[in-house]
């Protein structure tokens, strides 16, 4: 079935900006709430967006998050310019983290970010080039309850 795009918005994420980290995710949550998306879907999108945003803040210089709302799914694309991920299989393992001591003291770097994203996505794709950056593509279906 052809799905119709209902809404598209882009968000800029600044690497290293721990003070404003999370704001793009809050904006996305507010948009989805305003257009009446189911609360369980919003909860999953919020987790995914937050973890992806924090990864950009922690490991990249700059990033963009794109939100697409279709009639049957939500698509999030996150692209960053930064250090990239050396070994994606390893990065996907719960508990594995390359966070600095300082980040860990702030409660980041539990090694739960990418696993949390995967767990809450219906489709999850990750591509990374070392010293260039990382791209994530996440789909969350809106019609789970009917399908």
């Amino acid at each position: 079935m052809q799905s119709k795009i209902l809404l598209q918005q882009n968000f800029e994420i600044k690497g290293g900006d721990f003070i404003n980290a999370g704001e793009s995710s809050i904006k996305i949550r507010n948009i989805l709430k305003d257009i009446g998306i189911d609360s369980d879907i919003i909860r999953r999108v919020a987790i995914v967006a937050y973890e992806a945003e924090m990864n950009v803040v922690m490991y990249a210089r700059h990033g963009k998050m794109h939100l697409y709302v279709y009639s049957n799914k939500i698509l999030l694309k996150i692209e960053d310019r930064g250090q990239g991920i050396k070994d994606i299989d390893l990065a996907m393992q719960p508990g594995y983290s390359t966070a600095t001591e300082e980040m860990r003291e702030m409660g980041f770097g539990a090694g739960m970010g990418l696993p949390n994203i995967k767990k809450n996505s219906d489709v999850f794709n990750i591509n990374s080039t070392i010293r260039e950056g990382t791209k994530l593509e996440i789909k969350i279906n809106l019609n789970n309850k009917n399908g």
């Binding site: 999370g22 809050i26 987790i47 937050y50």
Partner: peptide
């Protein structure tokens, strides 16, 4: 500050 984002989300 990030605790506020987590609580809000």
């Amino acid at each position: 500050p990030n605790i506020v984002a987590v609580a809000k989300l």
